[in-house]
Amino acid sequence: MFYKGAYKTPGGKLVGVRFTQRDGLLSEVEVHGDFFLYPEDVLQTITAALEGAPADLEDVALTNRIAEAIPDGTEWLGASPDALATAVRRALEGGPIDG
């Protein structure tokens, strides 16, 4: 059972997310998309920020949790913490998928 969702920023790029849930927390998170990110390994930091996040966290709190994890000097073009939080919410709203 997993969850997946995506969000395309208007005039920007797509950010997608896939995860499972364990005890109400996001687990085995994958973040992907056709955005640009410098430096590239900040992707692991962003993914780690979602790992263990409570599934019932409000959008704003989730956005902040992602934003706070991103180091100064990072360039994320075409997507944003807000866009990723929206993808997570959509994944949860979509419900679990078999597989």
Binding site: G16, R18, E30, V31, H32, G33, D34, F35, L37, E40, L43
Partner: peptide, 9 residues
């Protein structure tokens, strides 16, 4: 594929 894309997607 772009650096951050998922194969299955």
């Amino acid at each position: 594929l772009g650096r951050f894309q998922s194969v299955r997607n």
